[in-house]
Simulated scan of single mutants.
Amino acid sequence: MFCSRFPQSAQHIEDAIGAGKPDTLTIDRDNAAARRLDSLRGIETKPGLDRDEYPPAMFQEGGREASVRHITAGDNRGAGACIGAQCRELPNGTKVRIEVID
Rank of each mutant, 00 (worst) to 15 (best):
Q8M: 10
G84T: 03
T72N: 14
H70A: 14
A33G: 10
G20T: 13
F6W: 15
L90A: 08
G63W: 04
L37V: 11
V96S: 00
I101A: 09
R97N: 00
G62S: 06
G63Y: 04
R41S: 08
R69C: 01
T26W: 01
R97F: 00
G20V: 13
A32D: 12
D75E: 03
I71H: 07
F6P: 00
D23H: 14
L90Y: 12
R5T: 13
C87P: 12
E99N: 03
A57W: 12
A81H: 12
C82K: 09
D102Q: 09
T24R: 15
P47F: 10
R69A: 02
A16H: 09
G74E: 12
A85N: 11
A34L: 13
Q60N: 01
A79G: 04
G20P: 15
A33T: 14
A73F: 04
G62N: 05
L49A: 09
R69E: 12
F6Y: 15
M58K: 05
R77N: 09
T24L: 08
R5L: 14
C87E: 07
A10P: 00
L37Y: 11
G63A: 06
Q11C: 06
P22W: 14
A73D: 03
A57M: 11
R35T: 09
E14M: 13
K21Y: 12
D30P: 01
A85T: 08
V100N: 01
R88V: 11
H70F: 10
N76P: 03
P56F: 03
